[in-house]
Design a protein around this nucleic acid. Sequence first.
DNA 1: CTTTATCCAACAACGTGTTGTATACTGGTC
DNA 2: GACCAGTATACAACACGTTGTTGGATAAAG
Lengths: 200, 200
Amino acid sequence: MGRRPVPEETKQTLLNHFWEIYCRKPIEKMTVREITDAAGFNRGTFYVYFTDVYDALQAIEDSILPGEEQFEEMIKDHHKGLDRHQSLKEFMEFYEQHGDKLQVLLGPNGDPMFVSRIKARVRRLLIPHSSELHKLNERDRMKFEYLVEAEISSRLGIFTLWFSRGKDLPLEDLHQLVYDMEQKGSHQVGQEMLHRNGSE
Amino acid sequence: MGRRPVPEETKQTLLNHFWEIYCRKPIEKMTVREITDAAGFNRGTFYVYFTDVYDALQAIEDSILPGEEQFEEMIKDHHKGLDRHQSLKEFMEFYEQHGDKLQVLLGPNGDPMFVSRIKARVRRLLIPHSSELHKLNERDRMKFEYLVEAEISSRLGIFTLWFSRGKDLPLEDLHQLVYDMEQKGSHQVGQEMLHRNGSE
DNA sequence: CTTTATCCAACAACGTGTTGTATACTGGTC
DNA sequence: GACCAGTATACAACACGTTGTTGGATAAAG
């Protein structure tokens, strides 16, 4: 009775229960036994698939981070200046798709390593793709990287907050807000909000 | 011989060595023995001052996070729209002052809890201080919080990157960049950079 | 009947947090 | 100056839990 266990299923089951616990408590308080007990496996089985609790975390992170190709595709229009609406929408779709995971990984009990991996990835892919970038002098190219950093940071920050607040705003509104902000600056957007309300 | 140990000194010495190690390796790989050995104290002594390695980290974070009053002072002109140059400068001074610590705490081996504490702090202080904010309707007030989140995120992101790159840009340039970005939007700033270079 | 995936038990090594006792220096008191 | 109480640390030993590993048993699949 009980059909033969399939390795991939077992691994996934372990990951699922790992994640369920990871959502509730900081990783350093987790134990391998806790995971395997919950998953209904022997403790030793965990070590068949992972070397470590951190290894399990890595596995989950890897499953989220899109492959190089997919990522490249997703990002390439971003700074051609062609269609920034489209670029932003793709970013949002990515975030929506993995929202449950991202919320935790980028949150207070998340993994800073993951954040830095994402950022580095975006930087590395975004910078060389800007075809007009070679025109820039040394210093401006550096500044450009800081611009990119700012954009990623604020996007991630906003979305993480949005998720942690249970999506208290329609996606369209958030989209428009981020778009305006990148186009006109946060200060400007704030001012407009005040004036619009003041004249009503 | 060897004068009497002063508690505050001992605690500080422990913290110093904790930090020195924390900079080199993730906290979950640290041991109490490692710290006390380095500091030249008995392992038991650590537990006189801290309950935990994480407690020690907390202590360091607390020493960085400015007190409510100081923080309030630092932030209050921020959104009166009066002098945003000044507000930004104060932020930068804060970052410069604790740069060595912040770089690590906000970096890949940092503490996400700390990040979220900073953000929450800024939000909590910035929002109620905007005297014109009561004019806003429900939805716009929410949007405003997202604006603040974006601003904090990008500032923190930029400065962390700046530090991790060994301050590869003059402080003034960074200041101007962030200022422009918040005033005109990252997209706009990027465009200007390209055009300025193209016409030379 | 062989392969494969898991179970089970036991292991040494190590880190934890706690406790009781000892030492040494300090400051104050007579 | 000698004595004493208080304090900061040292030291040693403890029970406990977790780790990562191993060797052999079990059961289902082909």
